[in-house]
C-alpha cells in the first residue's frame, strides 16, 4: 500500500483504539509514577492485608450504616468519576490518591451495606472494585517491540521472537486482519512454543497475556517489527468473578 508509508507511522487501524492505547500507556505510566508514587510498596502481601482490613471495617460498621451513608458514598464516587470525565485527559483523577481514598471509603460503607442487606449486583461491584484496586500494585505491564526473526530478551522469564507478520486486506485496501506468528523460548531451554497472535485474540503463555498493539513497515511494505503488550494481572480472576456476579444480579433484576 502506497498510502501507508513507513517507519514510525502508527499504521492505520490496528484499531484506532489500540493506537491511542500506546500513547496512553506512556502518559499514564508517567502520571502513575508521579501521583501514586511507590506503588510497589503496596504489592502482595500488604495489599491483601489492606483488603482484609476493608472487609473487616465493613463488617464492624454493618449496624451503624444507614441509607444516607450509602447515598453519601455513592455521591462521593460520582464526584470522583465526574472529575475523571470532566478534567483534561492527562490529569487522570482515577489514578490519584484522592480517588483511592474515595474508593476505600466507598468499599467500607458499601461492604457494610451488603452485610446488612445482600444483593448480587452490589456484591459483584464490591468485589470488582476491591480486586481491581488492590491488584494494581501486583500488575506487570510492558509494551515490547519485536523485530522480525530475532529473539528479544527482556526481564520476562522467556524470550519472544516474531516469525512472520501478515496483513490481510479487504478489496478496498483497508485492513481485515493482522496476524503475528510468535515463538517463545525459555532462556536455557531448547524447547520452542509457537503461537498465533491476532487483534481480539490475545496469546497466553506462562501466566502472561500478550496483545497485538502495533506494527511498523518500510515504505516498500516490508514488515520491520511489531509491538506487543505483555501483561500479568494475578488478581484479574477476582475482577472477572465480580463482573460475573454483577451480570447475574442484572439478569436477576431483569427476570424479577
Amino acid at each position: 500500500m502506497q498510502s501507508f508509508s513507513g517507519t514510525g507511522t502508527l499504521a492505520e487501524w490496528l484499531g484506532i483504539g489500540l493506537q491511542n492505547r500506546v500513547q496512553r500507556f506512556e502518559s499514564a505510566g508517567y502520571l502513575y509514577f508521579r501521583m501514586i508514587g511507590r506503588l510497589h510498596l503496596f504489592s502482595f502481601p500488604l495489599n491483601l492485608i489492606i483488603g482484609v482490613f476493608i472487609l473487616y471495617a465493613g463488617w464492624k460498621c454493618r449496624r451503624l450504616v444507614q441509607d444516607k451513608h450509602i447515598v453519601i458514598v455513592l455521591v462521593l464516587l460520582l464526584i470522583g468519576t465526574l472529575l475523571e470525565g470532566l478534567l483534561p485527559a492527562h490529569i487522570h483523577f482515577t489514578k490519584s490518591w484522592p480517588f483511592v481514598i474515595i474508593l476505600v471509603v466507598f468499599l467500607i460503607v458499601w461492604g457494610a451495606g451488603l452485610f446488612r442487606s445482600f444483593s448480587l449486583l452490589g456484591a459483584g461491584l464490591w468485589l470488582a472494585l476491591w480486586a481491581g484496586m488492590l491488584g494494581t500494585p501486583d500488575e506487570y505491564k510492558a509494551s515490547i517491540t519485536l523485530p522480525t526473526h530475532q529473539y528479544v530478551h527482556t526481564s520476562l522469564p522467556f524470550d519472544i521472537r516474531l516469525d512472520t507478520f501478515t496483513v490481510r486486506r479487504y478489496p478496498t485496501g483497508e485492513p481485515m486482519e493482522y496476524t503475528a506468528e510468535l515463538s517463545f523460548k525459555e532462556s536455557q531451554s531448547p524447547v520452542v512454543t509457537e503461537a498465533t497472535l491476532r487483534v481480539n485474540h490475545p496469546v497466553r503463555y506462562k501466566g502472561y497475556r500478550m496483545y497485538l498493539l502495533d506494527y511498523e513497515q518500510t515504505p516498500m511494505g516490508d514488515i520491520v517489527s511489531c509491538t506487543v503488550l505483555v501483561t500479568r494481572q494475578p488478581w484479574s480472576i477476582l475482577v472477572l468473578l465480580g463482573i460475573l456476579l454483577m451480570m447475574g444480579g442484572a439478569i436477576k433484576q431483569f427476570i424479577k
Partner: peptide, 8 residues
C-alpha cells in the same frame, strides 16, 4: 482486546 477490564 486491550488487556484491561476497565481503563477509564
Amino acid at each position: 482486546a486491550w488487556g484491561e477490564y476497565w481503563a477509564w
